[in-house]
């Protein structure tokens, strides 16, 4: 018998129907038109291995929808989903016990009670043994530096502190497969760093598969070994992180604001790197080794009011992929 893949999605279709209704009293008497929006259409995906997998894509790409489908919270219209060898929509106990799910912008903790009370409840629901529970809780809360906050009501915690407590809640039953939907959303650099470290630590220590979504390439590149890029419900790229890096090159985005409107022709040999130009603003995508040359060229030949060098944004990466494979 062949071993089950961690995640196997075949011919998945999913659309949301929503009604557009006027707000207030008017909305009570009007049904509004039904609107159907297809998110996935004949989507296929197969993921395997005990590793951190980065799921990236711009807003509305369908990342959250995919995770909701994979965890069985919502039903697909068509197609087959298998996760850890189970059909998630059946919600079998043995499946759910191996699954952890954190939605970055939703609180899984009781708002008015300290985190410890929520953890205690999870202990009962997941039937975690007393000793294992205490060990795990101590370990995780030390690692995430929230051990002094366990007895403070959740509503009094800062966003970053709360997120770290939520992370504990998602991992407390030592799941084999964990979905983290934007765990670093709206957090400062230090909190982000702590969370990333924890993700890597957990993956190694417990041999788990962790799927992390994000908008930021950098976020993913530091934690994930494998990367999946999603755009408009379509798989744009799937593969090793190094492959992504080599495909997109070690490129950087350079944004320039000229003092006065500039023409393409004036940019000489740097024209091929120019991705956008409107009046006095330009955006280049250049290999790392050209950065110095280009900035020198720009500063000597033009008068410049602003210049920024950034890592590639996800939107740029996606555009590049579409150009490569027409």
């Amino acid at each position: 018998m062949p071993k089950d893949k961690v995640i196997e999605v075949r011919h998945l279709s999913k659309s949301y129907t929503s009604r557009e209704r006027p707000s207030g009293i008017k909305g009570l008497f009007k049904w509004g038109k039904k609107k159907k929006k297809a998110i996935f259409n004949d989507f296929n995906l197969s993921l395997d291995g005990q590793q951190v997998i980065g799921l990236i894509g711009p807003n509305g790409a369908g990342k959250t929808t995919l995770l909701k489908l994979l965890s069985g919270i919502i039903y697909p219209d068509q197609g087959k989903i298998k996760v850890l060898g189970y059909r998630p929509q059946k919600r079998q106990k043995s499946f759910l016990r191996q699954l952890g799910f954190l939605m970055g912008n939703k609180s899984h903790l009781w708002w008015n009670l300290p985190p410890i009370d929520s953890f205690q409840m999870l202990k009962v629901i997941y039937q975690i043994e007393e000793n294992a529970f205490n060990d795990t809780l101590t370990k995780f809360s030390r690692f995430l530096e929230v051990d002094h906050l366990l007895f403070k009501p959740v509503r009094q915690l800062s966003l970053g502190e709360r997120m770290r407590c939520q992370l504990i809640a998602a991992f407390l039953h030592l799941p084999k497969l964990v979905f983290l939907d934007e765990p670093t959303l709206a957090l400062d650099i230090i909190s982000q760093e702590k969370i990333r470290k924890f993700i890597c630590y957990y993956q190694k220590e417990y041999q788990a598969t962790i799927i992390v979504t994000s908008h930021y390439l950098k976020d993913i590149l530091t934690t994930a070994q494998e990367v999946v890029i999603l755009n408009n419900g379509q798989l744009v790229f799937q593969g090793n992180k190094d492959k992504l890096v080599s495909l997109t090159g070690h490129q950087r985005e350079i944004k320039v604001e000229f003092f006065s409107p500039t023409k393409r022709g004036k940019l000489q040999e740097y024209q091929p790197y120019l991705k956008k130009l409107n009046d006095s603003q330009a955006m280049f995508l250049v290999p790392k080794e050209k950065i110095v040359d280009l900035t020198k060229f720009l500063t000597t030949h033009f008068s410049i009011t602003d210049l920024t060098i950034k890592e590639m944004e996800i939107e740029t990466v996606i555009k590049e992929f579409f150009k490569r494979e027409p």
Binding site: S71, I73, R91, K93, S94, F95, L96, L99, I125, Y126
Partner: peptide, 12 residues
């Protein structure tokens, strides 16, 4: 609110 999703994930 959709918060019932959290309950759907419990193994119970």
């Amino acid at each position: 609110s959709g918060n019932i999703s959290a309950l759907f994930l419990y193994p119970i």
